[in-house]
Simulated scan of single mutants.
Amino acid sequence: MSKENMVSIIVGIFNVSRFLREKSLSCIFGQTYNDWELILVDDGSTDDSGQLCDELASSDERIKVVHKENGGLGSARNVGLDAAQGDYVWFYDVDDEAKPNLLEYSVQQMESHELDMLQFSFRAITPSLGVQEDVHLNERMIEGQKQLRDAFLDDILFVRNGNGFAWNKFYRRSFLEKNRLCFENQQIQQDEVFNLKCYHYIERLYLSPVILYDYYIYNTGNNRSRFISNRFDIYVSIREHFETLRKDWSINNSRFENYLQLRFYGCVDQSLRFNMLHPDCPWNRRKKKGEMERVLNHKYTIEAIEWARENVEGFENNIYLNAYRKRSIGLLSFASTFFSGLRKVKHSVLR
């Protein structure tokens, strides 16, 4: 393959010295394809991650390091995109593992099919539970917006994590630049919004059943497990990107509607039951009451709760719906503690 097929591997770095020390990016150096540049963007790390990046760069001229003030993964990836010089872009997460042939296979597919994007299959591994699951995409070559629209629900959106990440996707850099595609700065689910924006412009996409990546799911240490003050606003923004895609593609599908409503109902739970009751939440009771009112009065929340009353069954769900109806933080807190404790007891008995 010619020099023109260089891959820009972009990695956002923030306080990941553990993984840099343990893995030393070995799955990158072990690739069967060597025409790559590795752009490590140190996003204001407060541990020695930045120093470790510099040490890695001193050992290989293909590695570039950019140090910046903390701005989140989205801003770090945008800095990486600005520095990228390769024909293709791949975003790697340092706590995961890539198969040795990931780059070689992906470049071959991008070249032979002249793709805007490649999406490949992966293995999801949960170390704490000792379980793993192979997530295979249905093989499909998509040409044009109509085919993409027809394939979107069953072959992308309804596949586990099919839309939600960037690490199992290969992007043509000229495609991203032509359409001015970049990441937004929300603290969670930047990948999903980025991909939703890409779908408006993709003309050639290949869904590959080949597993090229091991995705590790950890219980702690990620943004999903933390208190985030604007969590609900992030969920609203994601929903708005879905609505934009629905309007652009004229989607009129009950399955898609049910997906959006169920998902946003889960977002309400995450914003109130998880985020507002999080042990790190600094809000006093007055602030929590105001946040609860703000969330429950939003139009998407009203639609989702109305949908849940008709479509989500179970005693636990009825208790939470009652707490939302009464605007009761006390009932919400009690129910959350009670059912969480019940699940822990159940889990310990079944072990």
Rank of each mutant, 00 (worst) to 15 (best):
D95E: 13
S225V: 09
M276L: 15
R149Y: 03
S17P: 05
R327V: 04
A323F: 15
N138T: 15
R226W: 07
H241N: 12
W307C: 10
F315T: 14
R286T: 15
V89M: 03
V295E: 06
S271Y: 06
S254V: 13
L207I: 06
S340C: 08
F170R: 02
I211Y: 07
L137Q: 09
V210P: 01
N179T: 01
N222V: 00
E133N: 11
C281S: 13
E61D: 11
T126S: 14
L181K: 05
E203T: 07
F232A: 10
W90C: 11
W249A: 01
S174M: 03
D214C: 02
G80I: 03
A304R: 00
W249G: 00
Y213N: 08
I39F: 09
Y171T: 11
E257P: 03
N168I: 06
L181W: 02
Y201T: 02
L25V: 12
K288Y: 05
Y105F: 15
V89G: 08
M110S: 09
K146F: 03
S348N: 09
Y213K: 02
G290F: 15
K287H: 12
G74C: 09
E316K: 14
N78I: 02
N230H: 10
Y206W: 12
Q51G: 07
Y105L: 09
G290A: 15
D42H: 02
A76Q: 04
R123W: 09
N284P: 05
G266V: 00
N223G: 11
Q270R: 13
F194Y: 04
C267D: 08
L157E: 00
Q132W: 13
K146T: 05
E293M: 12
L331Q: 12
P209N: 09
V65I: 08
R325K: 09
E203G: 11
R294H: 13
L176D: 00
V236I: 15
T220W: 15
A308H: 05
D233S: 14
A84Q: 01
S348Y: 13
E22H: 08
R343E: 15
Q119I: 10
F158H: 11
L20R: 06
W249C: 04
R77N: 07
N230K: 03
F183N: 00
C198G: 01
Y320R: 03
W167Y: 14
V135M: 12
V193G: 08
G164N: 12
N223V: 10
Y259L: 00
L205E: 04
L245F: 01
R160V: 00
D96M: 07
D116Y: 06
R309T: 04
F158M: 13
L207E: 08
I156V: 10
D95M: 02
T337K: 13
G144Y: 05
V66L: 15
N230V: 11
E313R: 13
K197W: 00
L296W: 14
V7L: 09
L245G: 02
W36I: 12
E97D: 13
L321A: 07
M117V: 06
E303T: 01
E313P: 08
S174Q: 04
K288E: 15
